[in-house]
Design a protein around this nucleic acid. Structure first.
Lengths: 343, 343
DNA sequence: TTCTCTACTGTGAACGCTCACAGAAGCATG
DNA sequence: CATGCTTCTGTGAGCGTTCACAGTAGAGAA
């Protein structure tokens, strides 16, 4: 119908052109391209020179057609979309994964599975083999997409321990429980005794583990667990604000709040300010993540740093290993207490 | 060496399998797949049934090999990477583009060109024809990547008017000048007369235009332009904070600040708070973007809304049209004044 | 009837690459 | 001299599609 490529792109050189230019055969060029074993130094040099001269770039479609690999990776987000907007962690993760893959010359396909339709479309796309593996961000339990991909045998690495996918799925996570323990111990060291907590969603391992760390430390220190001091949120700023208001109503005597994410902690700060409690004088507030929200908050948040740069790098490493035939594995990375103004 | 695909993925059905199942030829199946012209209802029905039965999904690599199209689009970010972290606008844009493309069943490849190496790698990748077109986010002038892509005739749509790429490149932008005018007029309507401004980078059209809008309105109202009331930032929160401090030092009598981005406005609020100025009583603050930062700020920001959802949708529309052979075009979308607590 | 036109269908070739195989050359060993 | 081994190279086949072309069947017109 219409003339394509108005700009006038010319036909790119093929492996054949390079072969002719270098005075060798296609096979030799291909060998130079992939590994370079069993090829003489002279031939290799000639081929490389020809590649430079012609400006040859391999046609990945042709390669994929025969190898069966796509040499690309999907970054799949099955969280509700609002979180993607709001949560600075996703940015960091996405960037880290993109860069780690770039080092292997592997493009990243961004896939957002918000609606049911999108879910189906993406599942088909992936199981059809259009990506070699999937980096999954979805902490919610019983994710049907993840389930299907697992069953279809698609290499998969989750960010955070997935629930209900059996033990055969790889994941990379921060040491949530340890991090929570560090924070609660720190709050105790400040002399706080009525420490409230705003948990993450309790159908996610992150949410569960951080609460578990809190309870462990309390038990170890002989402090009674008071469930009026515990409310749960969904990692959003709004849920932090609402949670803090519930806490203030239930336990006006609280002197610290451990919040399971920095974004929620922002909301907590807002609620405390409105209630006339000053931070950190009246109430100490501890966050979790060390996302950019921690620096944006007023006062800046004392928080538990999740090493997102390392997490993304590990996710990519584990996924590529798995695509290469290795068994699934789990990686837990240590967290770090970062002290700032809020506690 | 190693056995690939431990999970045991089976070979997916091909067009041949579908043809056999439906009792027709490859050609007919292909015709049903692409448009469906010149194919009898009976055959079409049989083919569709066979597709459903076999679970057939087209092999895009094989298709691309022959059509020359890749049926994928690159989302290219050449901004310094920190902005990508911090700025909530990117998220919205990225999400919007991904979804708009998903509606056309076109995957989005995320490309971050931070370092010089990455720039080269990505340029080669794109000019080699591995994507059909590029959605470009890079407002900085003289972007070498954009330049090269343009010259190579790669279909390209920029977010915001690009500088120095000639008039033959498509772009989608908000009406920056109008938006700035609306905000300044609104601040005047509040009785403010000493209106300071924190501009964006002045090597970007956005930065220039928003400042121009400010000056226009001042001139129209017969208010003298005072360049001590003008400082420029780089859209980051930190630069907003620093800018406000300079302004307060230079012009302690300022009674309003028009800030060229919400993120910078957050920094401005911080600096004003530290200086003991209350917002909006002592000083009115107006932002720009209506990003999530506007809601996160305290008080919430009165701002100029950029319709990012429409911008991303238009970017995709224009790009696809251009790939289809149409000429480059520019789209300017209207902004909207959103009143909240800060002014 | 015969011819033409339209609506539809099948077939071979090609896209650019990798892979398996065959073969050539060089060198050491029997 | 034959044999085997290692290192290197070229060649044909095939990956799963689309595209151009040829061909068939049926309807309508001459």
């Amino acid at each position: 119908m219409t003339m394509s490529n108005t700009g006038g792109r010319r036909k790119p050189p093929t492996i054949h052109d390079v072969a002719r230019e270098a005075g060798v055969s296609r096979g030799t060029v291909s060998r130079v391209l992939n590994g370079g074993h069993y090829v003489s130094p002279t031939a290799a040099e000639a081929v490389n020179a020809a590649i430079r001269k012609t400006g040859y770039v391999v046609n990945r479609h042709a390669r994929s057609l025969i190898t069966g690999r796509s040499d690309s990776i999907g970054f799949l987000l099955t969280e509700p979309q609002e979180r993607f907007f709001e949560d600075p962690n996703f940015n960091v993760l996405l960037r880290g994964c993109t860069q780690a893959l770039a080092a292997h010359d592997i493009p990243l396909l961004l896939m957002l599975a918000g609606t049911e339709d999108e879910r189906r479309r993406i599942t088909r796309y992936i199981t059809a083999g259009h990506v070699d593996g999937v980096l999954l961000v979805s902490s919610h339990s019983g994710d049907p997409v993840a389930q299907e991909l697992c069953e279809a045998g698609v290499p998969l690495v989750a960010c955070g321990k997935p629930i209900g996918l059996g033990s055969k799925v790889s994941y990379v996570a921060a040491a949530d429980r340890d991090g929570a323990r560090d924070m609660v111990r720190y709050l105790l060291s400040l002399g706080r005794r009525r420490i409230a907590v705003v948990t993450g969603p309790l159908d996610t391992p992150g949410g569960v583990e951080r609460l578990a760390g809190y309870r462990e430390v309390l038990a170890e220190e002989g402090i009674e667990y008071d469930d009026r001091l515990v409310v749960s949120g969904d990692y959003s700023r709004a849920s932090g604000e609402a949670g803090a208001e519930r806490l203030l109503a239930q336990c006006p005597d609280l002197d610290a709040v451990f919040v399971a994410s920095d974004l929620m902690a922002q909301g907590v700060l807002t609620a405390l300010e409105r209630a006339g409690r000053s931070v950190p004088q009246d109430v100490s507030v501890g966050g979790f993540d060390d996302s950019s929200a921690a620096l944006a908050a007023r006062p800046q948040l004392t928080t538990i740093r999740q090493p997102y740069d390392r997490i993304s790098a590990e996710m990519v490493r584990v996924l590529l290993a798995q695509i290469g035939g290795e068994d699934p594995s789990a990686v837990i990375l240590p967290t770090e207490l970062i002290k700032r103004g809020s506690a």
